[in-house]
């Protein structure tokens, strides 16, 4: 019998939002979403979970990033950016950005192969752009 691989059901990106391309290895204990290890977080790391969420912490549950961010009461200032928690910080900031700014977002799946990463080989050369700001 062939084992079927499941894609991670989380997303990445701020402006061009697209599905995570990793294979799912873990199921979120709360929402039952399949997620990859990048998008999975240990509930026992949650600082000050609310009453209703303490059970996940107690059970050492694994949560998807969406559920983790929902429970995690830390302020963005208290999150160390050189760590895996950087993605938690990013989620929190994206939520704020959505709330505070009129926001443009392009969902990659709405546009088929338009945002296909492998579509073109692109050379990023900024050497001739130095003078742009001189004015």
């Amino acid at each position: 019998m062939e084992e079927k691989t499941t894609r991670c059901e989380e997303f990445t990106g701020l402006f061009v939002v697209r599905n995570c391309e990793n294979n799912a290895t873990i199921v979120c204990d709360k929402c039952k979403k399949n997620v990859c290890s990048t998008h999975a977080f240990k509930a026992n790391q949650i600082v000050n979970p609310g009453k209703e969420h303490a059970v996940y912490k107690k059970n050492n549950s694994i949560l998807c990033i969406s559920c983790f961010v929902e429970f995690d009461a830390r302020l963005t200032n208290d999150i160390e950016l050189y760590s895996k928690d950087r993605s938690v910080w990013r989620r929190k900031m994206i939520h704020r950005f959505h709330a505070e700014y009129p926001y443009m977002v392009f969902l990659a799946e709405d546009y088929g192969s338009l945002f296909d990463r492998s579509s073109t080989v692109f050379l990023h050369d900024d050497s001739d752009e130095g003078s742009y700001f001189d004015s």
Partner: peptide, 24 residues
């Protein structure tokens, strides 16, 4: 504040994106 600064800068990119629509 760090949050304020980074969101304001991100909003500049947002402003540029608001001028275009992906070609279907």
């Amino acid at each position: 504040a760090v949050d304020y600064f980074s969101l304001e800068v991100i909003n500049l990119i947002n402003t540029c994106y608001s001028c275009v629509t992906p070609s279907a």
